[in-house]
């Protein structure tokens, strides 16, 4: 399958990347690992005039320890990050979600920035132009309907990133730089909740870094898939326990990951959160297992992850 026509530009600095972006009036995509972007382009889901390769920007690659934080450049690969001793020692939930992402080969190419900022997915969206033209364009393709839910008012595509929920449970923050300056926001604030435009970042803005607090935590990640590798989560649950309280992240179901807080870790609290997350989950028939089942698994997996942590944490 060939790619649509576009130009290729390599940026050496963030400023240069922003400049190219504005030169092309925003008809541009930033390219890091490409494991999410290239299939989207092959399917003609986007037709940019230019692809701006940001892999050469040094400051986006580094992983450094500063103060009590790990500063992670978004272009660090998932595999590099997985091998970072601080993550292995202190952040078991994040380590496990990195390890559970796709497969080894794609972990070595895919970046943490790209993984967080991956587009939402739907069985009726990630298809060729011919398939989608025959079916008719939905909201996410600029059409006026949803092809999955009759009379839906919004897009129900699923956010399938494995690592954003883990990062949310460890209170990670994202640094965003754009034409109008720089800001630091909680990872959860990256998500708009709208499947059509799943991110709050504005056109041209670049994820510059991820700040991960390095505190001793317990945690685990549980992922529901049909196969043991390559697959996106049909439901993913991340749990991190720190200083007696816990956070739960849920992914793979609906247009954004959600995070929940437990003031205390006890059975009652866990059940409450499991129920609440179950209520919040609004899956539709756009992934390979039924919506009712996926909804049910949100609660089941939350309870299961806590049990696993209690027994010693690792999978």
């Amino acid at each position: 399958m060939i790619l649509p026509k576009f130009e290729y530009k390599k940026a050496r600095t963030i400023e240069e990347a922003l400049e190219i972006y504005s030169q092309y009036n925003g008809e541009a995509f930033y390219l890091a690992g490409g494991t999410d972007l290239v299939p989207l382009l092959k399917h003609r889901l986007f037709n940019p005039k230019v692809v701006i390769d940001i892999k050469g920007i040094e400051e986006l690659k580094t992983i450094t320890k500063k103060g009590g934080n790990l500063l992670v450049g978004p272009n660090a690969t998932l595999y590099e990050l997985k091998g970072t001793p601080e993550i292995q020692e202190k952040l078991p939930c994040l380590f496990q979600s990195l390890d559970a992402t796709s497969c080894e080969t794609l972990q070595m190419r895919g970046t943490i920035g790209g993984n967080i900022m991956q587009n939402t997915r739907c069985l009726q969206y990630n298809k060729s132009l011919e398939w989608r033209t025959a079916r008719g364009f939905c909201y996410k393709m600029g059409g006026k309907t949803c092809n999955v839910v009759l009379n839906a008012k919004a897009c129900y595509s699923n956010y399938c990133g494995d690592n954003a929920p883990s990062l949310m449970t460890v209170d990670a923050k994202a640094r965003i730089v754009g034409p109008t300056g720089e800001k630091t926001i909680k990872v959860e604030k990256l998500f708009s909740g709208d499947g059509k435009e799943p991110f709050t970042v504005k056109p041209g803005e670049i994820l510059k870094g991820i700040i991960i607090p390095l505190k001793e935590t317990k945690g685990a990640y549980e992922k529901l898939t049909v196969r043991g590798s390559i697959d996106y989560p049909l439901v993913g649950v991340a749990v991190t326990i720190k200083d007696g309280s816990a956070k739960v992240g849920v992914t793979g179901i609906g247009p954004c990951p959600r995070v929940y807080e437990l003031k205390e870790v006890n059975e009652k609290e866990i059940n409450n959160i499991a129920d609440k997350a179950y209520e919040d989950a609004k899956p539709v028939l756009n992934a390979v297992l039924t919506p009712a089942y996926r909804k049910k698994m949100v609660g089941v997996l939350i309870k299961r992850v806590f049990k696993r942590i209690e027994k010693g944490g690792s999978r």
Binding site: L3, Y8, K10, L31, G34, T35, V38, P39, V51, D53, K55, T105, L106, M108, R109
Partner: peptide, 10 residues
């Protein structure tokens, strides 16, 4: 690497 996902200019 998956060579189908990489642009040669990269």
């Amino acid at each position: 690497v998956r060579s189908c996902l990489i642009l040669t200019p990269e």
